[in-house]
Amino acid sequence: MLQHFGKYLLFMSTLFSRGESPRILFNRTMDEAIIIGINSIFIVAIVSTFIGAVTSVQISYNLDNAFIPRSTIGFMVREMTLLELAPTITSIVLAGKVGSSIAGGLGTMQITEQVDALEVMGINSTSYLVLPKVIASILVFPMLVILAMFLSIGGGFIAGTLTGEISQQEYISGIRSDFIPYNVVFALIKSVVFAFLISSISSFKGYYTSGGALEVGQASTGAVTNSVIAILVADFVLANLLL
């Protein structure tokens, strides 16, 4: 375990040694960002909309006390979305989607000697292949999380009003009450940390694949499990540090 962690730290340090020109790094990062964004936007949209909808239905089910105003439903959907659901659930979904594709892609390149081919050309394969993925994730994840915030709150609105549990005015006044902007900042900080963890852990797992197709599959699964655990631990630590 400790040995793995040491190897991971060494791996991270190679990312920044002797990289390619800034122009190449920029182009590669943009390519990766587009891939990550386009591949994940659909699943993020679906998941966040439904999570928002389910949250609002469940809250209203639990709130049958006549002394609590119905607008509380909107308020609680917003708070839960901003603090936990949008950043953390989205990141866990992305760990599956992005993490497995990073690890699978790098693993395949490793076992088919494509990484060796880069190295022989005098290119630092980690800074060429991995660094753009990490930077791109850090850029794209917050955008996906912001999207997830809107869709989740929107999903709550649709579900709440369609089921007749809450009126449109009540929901809107709920999501506008006692808004703390810092919670959004907190969510974005979390998304950046998670992005770094997912992309670097998955790259690490993929880059050190050896063997054949079977090992590539194992690297992908390993990337997802390790990323998810890292997200949950980091989530706990960040909540203690920053709230």
């Binding site: 002797r18 395949t108 088919t112 060796d116 081919a117 190295e119 022989v120 005098g122």
Partner: peptide, 22 residues
């Protein structure tokens, strides 16, 4: 590493598995 990379830039290599970027 710097000197190695300089030499490597003068190397052309064909791999047994071809190693084309797929």
């Amino acid at each position: 590493l710097g000197i190695k990379q300089e030499i490597r830039r003068k190397i052309g290599m064909l791999f047994q598995s071809s190693a084309l970027f797929d």
